[in-house]
Design a protein around this nucleic acid. Structure first.
Length: 215
DNA sequence: ACATTAAGTGATT
DNA sequence: AATCACTTAATGT
């Protein structure tokens, strides 16, 4: 991808936020990266010394315990960044989350050293970082609430609606098993509750596909 | 036609 | 809500 295309993409999603000088700097020091659906971007305990800016696509963020049991926390969308990677000035601590591309995605990787530099230099960058933190922490609260207070059927339905919103398509390509893994439950439970949601007219079930009608 | 994988279901805890 | 045990349906070779 050449500079012009990259510049165009950056402007598409960050123009309103970043001033021209900052965009120029991003173009200068950033590297473009394309990831395919289901590609692992960052795994738990890996070091990530770059700041990712998501241009297009979506990234699924999950946690895992020592037994390998996994649970999805939230999704990153275009224009988002991973605030977890801001955590430490030098990017030396290990990642506590896993990021997998939910669909083909494009991102720009920035050297973490620029974080401090731009914080003093650009008002828009400061705002962007603080906003990102806010958005992320609110997503986290939402994830906690969902886990703590919602029953499995509501969690499944919320999960489906979130996916529709993020992928911008009410026809989801997924299996009951994948949902079970993401929500950390069993496939049998997912199948039952999905059937119930279908009977309520909220979704329609097919093999390897789920159509969300009420979103 | 057969094997494999996804999905549906009753019964039990 | 989880698990078992089994059935049925769809898809690949």
């Amino acid at each position: 991808m050449n500079k012009e295309e990259l510049s165009e993409k950056l402007n598409d999603f960050f123009q309103v936020i970043f001033e021209k000088e900052l965009i120029d700097e991003i173009l200068e020091v950033g590297t473009y990266k394309m990831v395919k659906e289901n590609e692992l971007l960052i795994d738990i305990d890996e070091k990530f010394d770059k700041i990712p800016l998501l241009l297009t696509g979506a990234i699924k963020i999950s946690r895992e315990d020592k037994n390998g049991d996994e649970i999805v926390l939230y999704f990153l969308e275009r224009g988002d960044t991973c605030t977890v990677s801001f955590g430490n000035g030098l990017g030396l601590t290990k990642s506590k989350i896993r990021g997998v591309a939910e669909k083909d995605s494009e991102l720009i990787l920035l050297p973490i050293s620029k974080l401090d530099e731009w914080m003093v230099k650009y008002e828009s960058w400061r705002t962007f970082v603080i906003d990102s933190y806010n958005i992320r922490i609110n997503e986290m609260f939402e994830a906690i609430d969902t886990l703590a207070f919602m029953n499995m059927e509501d969690r499944i339905f919320k999960y489906l609606r979130d996916k529709v919103k993020i992928l911008r398509d009410p026809m989801l390509s997924t299996t009951h098993q994948e949902i079970a893994t993401d929500l950390h439950t069993s496939r049998v439970v997912v199948s039952r509750l999905l059937k119930h949601l279908e009977n309520e007219g909220k979704i329609r079930l097919y093999r390897n596909r789920i159509e969300v009608l009420d979103y």
